[in-house]
Amino acid sequence: MKLARFSPAAGGVVRIGRVEGDEIVELSGVPGVSTSLRALIPQLPELREALEAASGPRHALADVHLHAPIDDPQKYLGIGMNYKEHAAEAAAAGIPTPTSQLWFNKQVSCITGPTDDIVKPAISDELDYEIELGVVIGEKCRHVSVEDARSVIAGYLVTNDVSVRDWLQKRSPTFTLGKSFDTHGPIGPWLTTDDEIADPLDLHMQLTVNGQVRQDFDTNDMIYDIYEQIAYLTQVMTLMPGDILATGTPAGIGAPTGRFLKVGDVVRAEISGLGAIENRVVAEG
């Protein structure tokens, strides 16, 4: 299933729906469905049949506003330099390749919707983009083995790990501040459940800026795959339903060439089988 949070384009109450082609079917009539997809995730196994069969009101996707599928995760974590080609371009710029998994927090207040604006901070001229496969955790878990890691995944979404480079590399060496500006976590367009994807390690990713291709890679270029990531993290912490893992970006980011985002730019990030998010860069008001 493809599960989305949406509201009528003119405003109104947020609802959860099932995406079918160019339409979305309301699921409000299914017992247990509220406006929170995070709250629904632990119930997906028992509610799946009802969710798939529900025949509530239908809306054209073009007529609704899509919200961030999960706007209230307990954790939004990202891994740095986890694609071989990206690590190589970073090394060429003098940034050493980590010898183990390098994780950082994106504060959850950065999350925004799949078509909402990205605000360029007035204090920075080094606004960068990073397409990433987002993994959403489906159950409370700790000490998960690599072999069992897929069983704790609820599904996937497209993320753009927007980064403020002059804060990331110069003013906040822990990455957290440079990764956590408001609106710098667009995700979506919906949650695609794990059963819809044959192999999440064989998906095509492409990011364009104003229609120009900047990143164009497959998820099989990861240094640490998503199962190794889950096993590594759960040695340290309990992952909860709805937690989001941004699993690394491929080569082509703006930093090595200085091609940073400008006001008016339109950034489109698309992953095969998961859909696309598209966000315009606006000035901080």
Rank of each mutant, 00 (worst) to 15 (best):
E52K: 05
A53C: 02
A54M: 08
A54H: 07
S55K: 14
S55H: 11
S55Y: 02
G56Q: 09
P57R: 10
P57W: 05
H59Y: 15
H59M: 06
H59G: 06
A60D: 02
L61C: 07
L61P: 06
L61G: 00
L61D: 07
A62G: 14
V64M: 02
V64S: 00
V64W: 07
H65K: 15
H65Y: 12
H65W: 13
H65E: 15
L66T: 07
H67P: 01
H67S: 14
H67G: 03
A68G: 11
A68F: 11
P69V: 03
P69Q: 03
D71W: 12
D71N: 11
D71M: 13
D71S: 15
D71A: 15
D72G: 10
D72V: 09
D72C: 09
P73A: 06
P73F: 11
Q74V: 14
K75G: 01
K75P: 02
Y76M: 15
L77Q: 01
G78V: 06
I79F: 08
I79N: 02
M81I: 10
M81P: 00
N82D: 05
Y83I: 01
Y83K: 05
K84L: 14
K84W: 12
A87Y: 04
A87E: 02
A87N: 01
E89P: 03
A90C: 14
A90W: 15
A91M: 12
A91R: 11
A92W: 07
A92D: 13
A93D: 08
A93Y: 06
G94M: 07
G94Y: 09
I95L: 07
I95W: 11
I95N: 05
I95K: 04
I95H: 13
P96R: 04
P96T: 03
T97R: 06
P98H: 06
P98M: 02
T99M: 00
T99F: 01
T99W: 04
T99Q: 05
S100G: 10
S100L: 07
S100F: 07
S100N: 13
Q101I: 01
L102M: 10
L102Q: 09
W103A: 02
F104A: 02
F104G: 01
F104P: 01
F104H: 03
K106F: 10
K106E: 03
K106T: 04
Q107D: 11
Q107W: 11
Q107C: 11
